[in-house]
Each structure stands twice: as C-alpha cells, then as structure tokens.
Amino acid sequence: MKNKIIQQFFFSLITISALITALFLLIIIFFIFKNGFNAISWEFITSVPKNGMTAGGVSPAIIGSFCLVAAAILFSLPLGLACAVYLQEYSPKNYIVDIVKTGVSNLASVPSVVFGLFGLAVFVKFFGFGVSILSGGLTLAILVLPNIITTSQEALSAVPYSFREASLALGATQWQTIRKVVLPAALPGILTGIILSIGRAAGETAPIMFTAAVFYKKGRPDSIMSEVMALPYHIYALMTEGVNPEKQTVIAYGCALILLVLVAVLSSLAVFIRNKYRSSYER
C-alpha cells in the first residue's frame, strides 16, 4: 500500500514536470504566433523597410538569410559528405577514425560566438573578404559541418552491406559502388542532414554578427562580397537599436514568426523523411 502511494506521488511529479515543460514552450509559441500574425502580410514579406525601420517589410533580411544559408550549404556539403564517405566506406577502423570522430564532436560543441571570432579573424581580416556573404557563409559552413558529417555517416551506415556486395560482385570498383549504389540509397538520410543544417544556419546569430550581417542595407546584395541583412540578426537589431521600440517590436514579432515557421517546417520535414526511410529498411 505504502509503495503504491509513493509511486503515485512520484508519477504525479513527473507528469507535472512534463506539463510545466509543455506549458512553457506553448506560451512562447503562442505569443510569437499571436503577435506575429498581426505583423505579417504579403507586403511584410516582399517589401523593404521604411521610415527608419518602423514600417514596411523585411524582404532584404529574408533574401540575405537565404544567401547566407545557400553559401553555407554549398561549402559544407561537399566537404562533409566526402568526410562521411571516407569514414564509413574507406577508413580502416582504427585510432584515426576515433580521432576524427572526436574532432567532429568537439567542433559541434564549440560555442557559436567562437565561430564568429574565428570567421572575423580568418575570413574577414586575414583573407580580406570583409563583412560579406562569403565570410558569413564560410563561418556558418564550419558551424554546420559536424551536423552534415554525422547525419551523412549515419545514413551511409544504414545502407545494408548486401547492397555493396552485390555491386562489387558484378565487378564494379569501390568508387563505382559508392557512387551508383551506396550514395543513392543513403540519399534520404543525407537530405535529412542538409535540411537540419539549413535550419541551424538560418537561425544562428552570433556567427554572422561580425562576419556578414548589418542592420540596414539599401538594395539587394549584388555579389558574394556584399554585406547583407539577415532574419535572426534583424530581430536582435530591432530589439536593441533604433529609436522607436514599440513599432520595431511589432516587426520583430513578424521576423520571429517567419524564422520559427521556417525552422519548424524544415525540421518536421527532416523528421518525416527520416522516419519514412527508417521504416523502409526495417520492412
């Protein structure tokens, strides 16, 4: 009897903690959706800021974020994928693999502001790329690299060995097997990693603060060397700079909603693809 009461008590405690978690997160999402909806309109998404950031839209920030993310994926995908292929398909299972894996996990745990410092010192100053899409994109690329490597490697390792054996038995070389058999089979998993990395790169602020983003830029970015506005940085700047906090907060709500929906849709898509293809091998 006593045991049953103790169990009841602790299970209630656990349930309450889950409810509190749900409540906290729901409140945040509720506020952003409620206030964000009032700010968002077609014009908000497609027009440029007006009246010193107190009216108009945020299209330059959306375009800027898009450029940064595209650059980041463009740089990190080939490198990350090549690394994953080597680790999974070629590398002898020895201490080198362990070292590389430790390197990947350590790189993943570096604080984002430190990536910002690295990007500033190396890309902006040392290579002289200045505050630009190139500098920010490269910085974000290093930030998402561990993501791409880990998810790609998981995807490759999920491809059954019989696939490779069948191909090798037909006389294909190892590279032909990888290119024509293993990579296509691992594509959904690799895609999951790319999608998650897009979400991550789109939402990071600290790495682009010193390397790419500005509060206001007139006109579209005309080359990879131009500085840009970016959604997450725009939210920060709207809340901390400028002269009209009330009107700026409304715009920031709109930006936050766009970013939240973008990241949520991307990660739902990733979860969906992953679950679908996981079950396809289990069958």
Partner: peptide, 8 residues
Amino acid sequence: GIPSIIFG
C-alpha cells in the same frame, strides 16, 4: 531546433 534568437 528552435533558434536561440527566438527565445531571446
């Protein structure tokens, strides 16, 4: 996966 800027 929600970006920290949204929480901030």
